[in-house]
Simulated scan of single mutants.
Amino acid sequence: MTAEPLASAPSDEELPEWFYPPEGGWTADDLDRLPPSAPRFELIDGALVMMSPQTYFHSRVMWRLAQVLHQAAPEGMEVTVEMSVRLGPRQRPEPDVLVVNGPPDLSATSLPPEDVVLAVEIVSDESRERDRKTKPLKYAEAGIRHFWRIEREHDKPVIHTYELDDTTGAYVATGIHRDKAVMPVPFPVEIDLHSLAGR
């Protein structure tokens, strides 16, 4: 089933007050001031990016990967999903899965990049450019040591792994994993990729 396109753009009278950016543009703090009725957003370069509905593939892989990482994580590390990371005044992206040094503040609505050990993005059609280019660059600049990108190939997940190079400050590709992934970092974990999306 596909969604019907919007018939027309709403008029200014139909837009809610919060839709208009504050003077000087959106900041990371502004996300916490949006009303509960507002859609979920992440902030990239001061622009609000609306989070699109997930596919079942995306949701299943996200939750199952989080469970595998949770079981393997050493004491002192926590695994969470869909928490934004405050990379700067105008940067607050939201990775799909995060491994963080814990325990975090339970009342926090975002995480500082220095607490993030691993950020994982699961690529969707609408997020492809951000997940492949924009967000990895920003995670690397913020010093997040490990980044994984999960692509969908023939309805199966493939994990692309990256590690931060201290000399260049950029990510270096460390592997492309199909069927099974055996990761030594950020902690030892073995992932059966078929089980992430299969029954």
Results as ranks from 00 to 15, higher is better:
S59M: 13
S59K: 04
R60I: 12
R60K: 15
R60C: 13
V61W: 01
V61D: 01
W63A: 15
R64E: 03
A66H: 11
Q67M: 14
Q67L: 14
V68Y: 03
Q71L: 15
Q71E: 09
A73P: 00
A73R: 07
P74T: 02
G76P: 10
G76E: 08
M77S: 10
M77P: 00
M77T: 02
M77V: 05
M77G: 11
E78A: 04
E78F: 12
E78Y: 08
V79A: 12
V79I: 04
T80N: 04
T80H: 05
V81P: 09
V81G: 04
E82S: 10
M83H: 08
M83Y: 08
M83F: 08
V85K: 01
L87D: 00
L87K: 11
L87H: 11
G88D: 06
P89K: 15
P89C: 12
R90T: 15
R90S: 13
R90M: 08
R90Y: 10
Q91W: 11
P93Q: 14
P93C: 15
E94G: 06
E94T: 02
E94D: 11
D96I: 03
D96V: 05
D96L: 05
L98P: 05
L98A: 03
L98V: 04
V100G: 04
V100L: 02
V100T: 04
V100E: 00
N101I: 13
N101F: 12
N101A: 15
G102S: 00
P104N: 01
D105I: 06
L106C: 13
L106Y: 08
L106H: 08
L106A: 15
L106W: 06
S107T: 10
A108S: 13
A108L: 11
A108T: 09
T109L: 14
S110M: 10
L111G: 06
L111W: 09
L111M: 11
P112K: 09
P112Q: 05
P113V: 00
P113Q: 07
P113I: 06
E114C: 13
D115C: 12
V116H: 02
V116Q: 03
V117R: 03
V117K: 05
V117W: 02
L118R: 03
L118I: 00
L118V: 00
L118D: 04
L118W: 01
A119C: 01
A119M: 09
A119E: 12
A119I: 06
V120D: 02
E121V: 09
E121K: 12
I122W: 04
I122E: 03
I122S: 07
S124H: 12
E126D: 14
E126Y: 08
S127E: 05
S127Y: 09
E129R: 14
E129V: 13
R132N: 15
R132P: 01
K133Q: 08
K133C: 11
K133G: 09
K133L: 13
K133W: 10
T134V: 15
K135C: 06
K135S: 06
K135I: 04
K135D: 06
P136M: 03
L137F: 12
L137E: 13
K138N: 08
K138D: 11
A140S: 01
A140D: 04
E141G: 05
E141N: 10
G143M: 06
G143V: 05
I144E: 00
I144K: 04
F147N: 07
F147R: 06
F147D: 00
W148M: 13
W148Q: 15
W148P: 07
R149P: 01
